[in-house]
């Protein structure tokens, strides 16, 4: 055994010994097991996802199949935010955002079903390799703006590439130990940028080939909630396993401008409660926002619906909004 191997073994055993002996594991496991049973029952009684996502009249700032530009199409009549306050209407099926590609080549073992989310207006598909050992994970994102990268964790290099049809692309490599991060991005059309992120399990040539072999598809967003009603005249900004949020259709928006529904771990309720569907909730108004925190007792979680003060909403409407949020089997609480 070499020095490195001995050091590795010692480091692992040392950290293992530092694991605290908790006393609540069995109770936690039983709670989680019971929650899984409930989720299975919900799923069995559930309805299709496709009809439940986006509000009627919402400007869908996401890509649609066959769309050539990732356009932010405004649905007529109700596409602007009512200056009198937040309006809520039942979602329509044709507003369901979809991811427009699927891989034409797959790594060893293939990909699992993609997880499609929306992050700050960009639609993102995470393709997880089924074979965790030989495969490679790939994230593809599509949006109307040139990709913006987080501060790199290591030296960055960029190299020009050519895709089929002569389309110019950029291969960006962040050299970090022990595995480099590879990103390939290009402008597919005047209003559509595509970005692929992976690691150096893929070579540059394999990544370019992967990009060249993308095929048209319509993969629906994996939503954490089914909605009876949703904001009218707003863009769907973010959809993750724990959150859906909407932003104004025009102008720059910060987090403070977002209407959001977030699934969280259970929260303590202070003050008087009100009935929200079959649950109880606590409504709180401040100068900047109104929040309704609903105790989902049967899930041991909470739902937090937040509406900025700039969109006036009555208590009754906020309760109606929250009561119409049904947590799907895809949902996971934030931070969990």
């Amino acid at each position: 055994m070499s020095d490195v191997e001995r050091l590795l073994r010692d480091a692992m055993h040392e950290r293992a010994e530092q694991t605290l002996a908790g006393t609540g594991l069995l109770a936690d496991v039983h709670r989680r097991s019971a929650r899984r049973d409930r989720r299975r029952r919900f799923k069995a009684a559930g309805v299709g996802l496709a009809t439940l996502l986006v509000a009627v009249g919402v400007v869908t700032g996401v890509v649609r199949p066959g769309g050539d530009d990732g356009s932010r199409r405004a649905v007529p009549a109700t596409a602007s935010l009512d200056p009198g306050g937040l309006r809520l209407l039942a979602p329509s099926a044709d507003g369901t955002p979809v991811f427009p590609y699927r891989p034409g080549v797959t790594p060893a073992g293939g990909f699992a079903a993609p997880v499609v989310s929306i992050e700050a207006g960009r639609i993102v598909a995470f393709y997880e390799a089924k074979d965790p050992v030989r495969g490679v994970d790939v994230t593809i994102s599509v949006g109307g703006e040139r990709p913006v990268f987080d501060a790199p964790a290591g030296p960055v290099s960029e190299k020009a590439q050519r895709l089929h049809g002569g389309r110019p692309a950029t291969l960006r490599t962040v050299s970090v130990s022990p595995a480099a991060q590879l990103s390939l991005y290009w402008q597919e059309s005047p209003a559509r940028w595509v970005r692929i992120d992976t690691d150096d399990t893929f070579t540059a040539a394999e990544l370019v080939n992967f990009a060249n072999r993308l095929e048209p598809a319509s993969v629906p967003v994996t939503a954490p909630f089914r909605l009876d009603v949703a904001p009218v005249g707003m863009l769907l900004d973010t959809v993750t396993a724990s959150m859906m949020s909407w932003r104004p259709a025009t102008g720059a928006a910060t987090n403070a401008d977002l209407v959001s529904c977030v699934l969280t771990r259970p929260r303590t309720h202070a003050g008087p409660t009100t009935t929200v569907g079959r649950y109880r909730g606590t409504l709180r108004r401040t100068a900047t926002e109104t929040t309704l925190t609903v105790a989902l007792d049967d899930r041991d979680q909470s739902l937090v619906v937040r509406v900025p003060a700039r969109y006036p909403i009555s208590d009754a409407d906020l309760v109606r909004f929250a009561a119409g949020v049904d947590v799907t089997d895809h949902a996971e609480p934030a931070g969990g």
Binding site: L8, A11, M12
Partner: peptide, 23 residues
Amino acid sequence: RDEMWALLAGLPRAQRAVLVLRF
């Protein structure tokens, strides 16, 4: 050992799993 632990955290998951199972 601390340094080794930090380096281990940066390994791709499958490589890390192999090392943990082995060592």
